[in-house]
């Protein structure tokens, strides 16, 4: 079993919003053939933000992670180098039962998470994506398996727009708009 943890501390360039990192990490989960992807976004009282993405995919080889962190082309591990540069702390674990990535930021722009989530609209019908967001102001949960029940026909583009608006609105309230 392949299991490892990388811990990286860096005073980094902050080039991408958290929402863009979510797109990179969820793409990796799809590449690993995950059936369920969990995105957790947490803001602490001191304003620090933690992003964790977990999946039940086939994992990623350690040598691919090393290459990805070095910025080399790999079959999987997209965007890990950028995440390492942006985060104040990065924890990473992977084996054949799944992958878990957790990045902590002292302060960071959240961006529009709804815009990021709907990028996976077509795949959400095959793979479940759950978003859990928590801040001192409250919490919000989105589950792609409930789209039909809560928002309308998934084949209708207006449903996609509704989900985007709902997620963006909820997270703006939770995280108090864009953070610098």
């Amino acid at each position: 079993m392949l299991k490892f943890i990388l811990s990286v501390l860096t005073r980094a360039r902050r080039t991408m919003e958290v929402s863009k990192h979510i797109v990179d990490l969820v793409t990796n989960s799809f590449e690993a053939l995950a059936k369920h992807i969990l995105v957790m976004l947490t803001e602490e009282a001191d304003g620090s933000v933690t992003l964790c993405v977990s999946d039940d995919g086939v994992g990623i080889k350690e040598e691919d992670v090393v290459k990805a962190l070095a910025g080399e082309k790999t079959p999987r591990g997209n965007g890990l180098r950028l995440l390492k540069e942006a985060a104040d702390d990065l924890q990473y674990g992977s084996d054949e039962r799944g992958t878990h990535v957790c990045a902590a930021f002292r302060s960071m722009q959240i961006g529009n998470v709804g815009d990021a989530l709907i990028v996976f609209w077509q795949e959400m019908r095959i793979t479940a994506i759950t978003l859990s967001a928590v801040s001192p102001r409250g919490e919000f949960c989105f589950d792609s398996r409930l789209i039909g029940e809560k928002y309308g026909d998934p084949a209708d583009i207006q449903t996609m727009v509704k989900v985007r608006k709902d997620v963006n609105y909820a997270l703006t309230n939770l995280f108090g708009g864009k953070k610098e």
């Binding site: 080039t15 991408m16 929402s19 863009k20 797109v23 990179d24 793409t27 997209n78 965007g79 950028l82 815009d115 990021a116 709907i118 990028v119 077509q122 583009i157 207006q158 996609m160 727009v161 985007r164």
Partner: peptide
Amino acid sequence: MGTCGIQAGAVEVFNAFVDEISSRVIKNVR
């Protein structure tokens, strides 16, 4: 939506397509 695309603004472009298609109520576009 590769990493280079995301950095260059692919998420915004994706959402721009969604906005244009939905606001003009164009059917049969995926």
